[in-house]
Design a protein around this nucleic acid. Sequence first.
DNA 1: TGTATTTAGGACAAAATACTCTTATATATT
DNA 2: AATATATAAGAGTATTTTGTCCTAAATACA
Lengths: 145, 145
Amino acid sequence: MRVISKSGEYGLRALMYMVAHREEGVFVSIRDMAEHLDISFHFLTKILQSLTQAGLLKSYRGPNGGVAFNISPEKVLLSDVVRILEGDDFFDKCLLGLPGCGKLAPCPMHNIWKEIKGALKHEFETTSMAELGQAALLNRIGLVS
Amino acid sequence: MRVISKSGEYGLRALMYMVAHREEGVFVSIRDMAEHLDISFHFLTKILQSLTQAGLLKSYRGPNGGVAFNISPEKVLLSDVVRILEGDDFFDKCLLGLPGCGKLAPCPMHNIWKEIKGALKHEFETTSMAELGQAALLNRIGLVS
DNA sequence: TGTATTTAGGACAAAATACTCTTATATATT
DNA sequence: AATATATAAGAGTATTTTGTCCTAAATACA
Ligand code: SF4
Ligand code: SF4
């Protein structure tokens, strides 16, 4: 059961890292993140590029360069991140892979799925990256317990 | 957001079809199902083979052959099906793709995910294929509304 | 017995996802 | 200006998932 893709996972873990390690006016090195989080540097770079292009992050090239939040992490919702990295229809998917959930004459799975999906969407839309970052400070980021 | 794979989707849709169309002592043709549900015949055959090998279905070769429930659909839970088709650890996965959810020192996503996953698991473990089949009789199976 | 039908099973191919590598561009420092 | 460092961007490779095809085995029926 994979809910978010590897891209989504890596992106979220990187943003958690950034929140936990941010300093005002300092860009976080992608290479450092990749090493600390054990993610392929080039792959992570691409993922973060998507977030930069979407306006969520800003980047800076050259020595001491890196990425930083362009929007305050208090205002960045989990749902914003997954919508950018996994597609805008992330929360509109059907359990059976068919499009158009919630319309007339739903299939037998509809009621089951409606509840679950609603709960997931609600959680993602009421949790900010800042909150996740705070929690990350208490534990070891992105590591299994 | 794909929760179940294509294999799982096809398997569930086929079982719903079987419940809705079952007659005592009659095997349901895989080819008929594949056509009605618009699923590749060979692919569906393999998926149903897994369910047969797991003992959930029984099959019969030759004219008027096909597959039938080996276990009464009232006793077949949704969770049984996905565990067979997607792996026994289906409900043990982490939102971030890391193994071992629910242990000490959880990551920041843990509380969010724990609730959602618990709800999903509960729904799947309290819904039988018979129930889904009943609902399927009322609507059009596996079709989007 | 021979033929048609239907699942079983494995090899193969296509598509999607995940990951790697190379080159270009921007910036800082000397 | 020259060099080192870092992200941007796109091409290329690997792995997994999904789908196709061919042959074998079982069964029914003429
Ligand atoms: S009605 Fe059923 S098949 Fe259709 S989108 Fe909703 S859950 Fe999926
Ligand atoms: S604690 Fe977090 S990272 Fe670990 S398994 Fe649970 S949700 Fe995943």
